[in-house]
Design a protein around this nucleic acid. Structure first.
Lengths: 146, 146
DNA sequence: AGAAAAGGTGAAGTAACTTCACGATGAGGT
DNA sequence: ACCTCATCGTGAAGTTACTTCACCTTTTCT
């Protein structure tokens, strides 16, 4: 109990569970992970160009075209002309899209409370500090192997 | 600093980084995530039927057929007849496949050490305990919302 | 022996990705 | 003004990971 590998496995278990949580949301809304992710970014950044979305999502611009196509069909976003640049389009959430975003952020908050709300402030600080260390180690490990 | 939401965000960052690490491995080996996952299970369980793989991976048996097709083409596994059941096939790693599995488990160990090796035993225990609590909370949250 | 269940695959379809080519617009230098 | 070059989005074509449904073969159960 408490070996590095056990900790890693438990962390990986956590990631699978988190992804299960997202899948549940996905099922409830009928939206794919990719489209939810796009809406999430849209909620954080407000109306943006597809190019910006591609950068934020880490995918090619061409792929964003397809995702926006789907979200437009399902009535979650619209493509508005960019006021200053006639090449660009501003992807904008509709009322329905904004509603999903609101549900999304509410779910995020609820999940955070469910997971960490019961911890004492001191424990949260300790956990956060350790998490930071782990993240830093991981970033370093990633850079080294490249 | 240290609010539940910040902790969740940092945890999500950790999952992103872990997935980046897997992507890096994927790139190095030229194998997709799905095929690596299959090989990983194969490494843990030894030669098994496709049915068993489907259950372990949480996908349909039909999908496993396709994944094994790919791994067979790339020379990582073979389909051996099952000694007791002529319907079934035993997916078996080749020498190349076994090598990838070995690299995989070595990478897993190295990553665990890189992330948690520098922590004191007491810290590891504390972190593990908190991780357990968080996982338990998450499991409960998942059950409630269903 | 006969029915039902289990193992694997063909066929067909969806979604998320990619690269490459191309048309339209914007921006900078001369 | 003009030409070049970068940038925004999309059509075309292809890959991979998935799904469901139908089907054949073999095992298992009564």
């Amino acid at each position: 109990m408490g070996t590095p590998e056990e900790l890693l496995d438990r962390t990986l278990l956590l990631t699978t569970l988190l992804s299960a949580d997202m899948d549940a949301f996905s099922e409830r809304t009928g939206l794919s992970q990719a489209r939810i992710h796009l809406l999430w970014v849209l909620g954080a950044e407000g109306p943006v160009t597809q190019r910006a979305l591609a950068a934020a999502l880490g995918v090619t611009p061409r792929n964003v075209t397809g995702l926006v196509d789907g979200l437009e069909r399902s009535g979650h976003v619209t493509r508005e002309p960019h006021p200053d640049d006639r090449r660009a389009l501003l992807v904008t959430p509709t009322a329905l899209g904004a509603e999903v975003v609101a549900t999304l952020t509410a779910g995020h908050r609820d999940l955070a409370d469910a997971l960490f709300g019961s911890l004492s402030a001191a424990d949260r600080r300790r956990f956060g500090a350790m998490l930071d260390d782990v993240v830093a180690s991981l970033v370093q490990a990633l850079e080294e192997q490249r």
